[in-house]
Design a protein around this nucleic acid. Structure first.
Lengths: 219, 219
DNA sequence: GATAAAACATGACATTAATCAGCTAATTTT
DNA sequence: AAAATTAGCTGATTAATGTCATGTTTTATC
């Protein structure tokens, strides 16, 4: 349910005319933390990770974006520099750029679009608060289990329960906030406990209630 | 710079007429995580902490609010249950309630007010991302130093460099995401290193550049 | 003002998780 | 295809931090 579903057909056309689309291969940077942005980016195809670089130079993945999602709106609306970098995590990722004025004029003209933005931002803020509490209170094992479940919800599973996103062990560690070695060890544990199956970067969720129990999530 | 500075005099009056003010003593609950809200709360006097209860029943402080700040807007705008509880941390905290319809009609009518909200939400989101990276990557010592600096920025210092907020060791621990004992030990260390002076819940920042170095913040 | 309760403090100990080292497997480059 | 680089894996060790126990001080209550 993208923010753009609040637009009229004419407005969608207006955007289509002004926007510029770009292609990115895996690893290519969409934008850089600290820079200014003059519009927002809309993911058309592929997947993107948003991350900050911590004081020791380590990457912290803040969130992901998939087709229909927009990124860069936080910096645009707050008129601050970009708080995170974005890079493609799949080949052939296609991203459109919608310039600032377009966005601002549509927010001003279309109350629906405006409320969509308010809703999206405040929803994100709630998610961020949850993550903060988990990072502060849960041990690594629980956080990894929860991360797998969140990735499942974000990217879905195929018929064989494979999470539909491929991440390196290091990237998983950079979501969970732990060392790569810890992720490797815990994934083997989960595998031994028949909670998941692992084949390279493919992770199959064999026992979701079990994982939920490990993650200690009640909702 | 409160969101309300975007309002016209008539609009401020309109709010004044509809709003209800309440008094809270230290510890009294303003609203409860999980409940629905039908408006937003505006702090008039005093201080408030916003916190979530983690899976082990431990409190995680997400942020603070002081006079001029609003709370509860996240849940109102996202139309989700409140993601955090709020309680007064000072006696005689005075908080006004502004009903939902007021807020929504003002957002719709006053573009300035609307943009203030968008700006506030997106700014908060950036702050949350920073906190996530710190929690995931920085050791407790650095996080405590940073917390003291953030509290200073939020609540200011008096002429003698005392942070203008009184928190228990446990509450500090619930910001930093650590055990109370760790906070106690680290505060003594900071004291020994002449970075701070401590008298009960009064914390004096003697050496801010020093603390900044400990916190490992470059900005 | 005595008593109870809560907050603060400190030491000993256990546990978690990071770091380091070395090794293998898988990719990528030449 | 060989060489080089990167990713994944495992064990040993260390460092960081949480937990437990206990005592002291402060604050609240009767």
């Amino acid at each position: 349910m993208s923010v753009f579903c609040a637009l009229s057909n004419e407005q969608v056309e207006e955007i289509d005319n002004s926007k510029g689309c770009n292609f990115y291969n895996k690893g290519q940077v969409v934008f850089h933390e600290g820079n200014r942005t003059n519009g927002i980016y809309c993911i058309n195809k592929g997947k993107v990770k948003l991350f900050q670089i911590g004081s020791e130079g380590k990457e912290q993945i803040i969130r992901f974006a998939k087709p229909g999602d927009v990124i860069g709106y936080r910096a645009l609306l707050s008129e601050e520099p970009l708080s995170a970098s974005a890079s493609a995590i799949e080949d052939d990722t296609t991203i459109c750029f919608i310039p600032r004025d377009q966005i601002f004029s549509m927010i001003a003209q279309n109350p629906n679009f405006n409320f969509k933005f308010l809703k999206m931002l405040s929803h994100e803020l709630g998610e961020a608060a949850k993550i903060i509490t988990d990072l502060a209170q849960k041990p690594v094992r629980e956080r990894l289990a929860e991360t797998l479940l969140i990735l499942k919800d974000t990217f879905d599973m195929d018929e064989e329960k494979n999470i539909q996103v491929k991440l390196s062990r290091e990237e998983l560690a950079n979501i969970v906030g732990t060392a790569t070695e810890s992720v490797i060890r815990l994934l083997s544990e989960f595998k031994k406990d028949k909670l998941i199956a692992v084949e390279g970067r493919n992770i199959k969720l064999l026992n979701i209630p079990g994982l939920t129990r490990v993650a200690n999530v009640f909702e």
